[in-house]
């Protein structure tokens, strides 16, 4: 499958009637397998909204959104859950489970994969944490890690299930320049190795160079 994400004529609004706030207007975007696309745009332009629709976290009702061959507009809960399982999502706040260690957090992404034993799950999670440079932090809980380390755990969690697509919402927002570039560098390296498609939303101009393509969203319209 060449086209991983295909969006045609997508419109989205919050609220209804007088309070209707149209956030996305007839958006078209196609992303091919293995591409790394960065989406930028001013605050409030609808980037997060767009990303949550692609990630099957929000229900769109107008237009066409095809992700990994699945139509997401007016889709069933079951179809959305299936898509979510094939996507790695990196949140702006790391959103790790604070009661779990780094390796347990990463392994949570594998619990839904049938056919893996507990040992295999933990092994794969540990390997992934090594790849993001956290070999010595496997058994640390999130509140014992630095912001950059947490974001790297969260990258490991997004990638460990070998997803076809990774969606990242401002993954460097809470990091300083150095650790931000570190985290994104790791993400790019691993994604290129596995041929993963990435759509990354950011304000951070320092990381634009990792992208194959940059698109800009302004007032709900792709430029």
């Amino acid at each position: 499958m060449d086209k991983m994400i295909e969006v045609n004529d997508l419109s989205f609004s919050f609220g209804s009637g007088e309070l209707k706030n149209t956030v996305l207007k007839n958006v078209d975007l196609t992303i091919h397998a293995g591409e790394i696309v960065i989406m930028t745009g001013p605050s409030g332009s609808g980037k997060t909204t767009f990303l949550t629709i692609i990630g099957a976290l929000r229900q769109a009702t107008e237009g066409h959104v095809c992700v990994i061959g699945q139509q997401l507009v007016n889709s069933s809960e079951y179809a959305k859950v299936k898509i979510r399982q094939q996507i790695g999502y990196i949140f702006q706040q790391h959103n790790l489970l604070k009661s779990l260690t780094a390796v347990q957090n990463v392994a949570m992404a594998l619990e839904m994969h049938p056919g893996l034993s507990e040992t295999q799950r933990l092994q794969r999670s540990a390997d992934m944490l090594c790849s993001v440079g956290l070999d010595d932090r496997l058994y640390y809980k999130p509140d014992q890690l630095s912001g950059g380390q947490r974001q790297r755990v969260s990258i490991a969690r997004a990638l460990v299930g070998k997803p076809k697509i990774v969606l990242a919402d401002e993954p460097t927002a809470s990091l300083d320049k150095h650790s931000g570039q570190d985290a994104v560098g790791v993400l790019k390296k691993l994604a290129k190795e596995a041929g993963t498609t990435i759509l990354l939303v950011t304000h951070d101009y320092r990381i634009l160079d990792i992208a194959d393509r940059i698109v800009e969203l302004e007032d709900g319209i792709i430029k």
């Binding site: 976290l57 859950v81 299936k82 898509i83 979510r84 399982q85 949140f91 959103n95 790790l96 489970l97």
Partner: peptide, 13 residues
């Protein structure tokens, strides 16, 4: 709740 939401986004039912 927010941890559950994270898991939900990861595909948990």
């Amino acid at each position: 709740l927010n941890e559950f939401a994270t898991l939900k986004a990861m595909g948990y039912k």
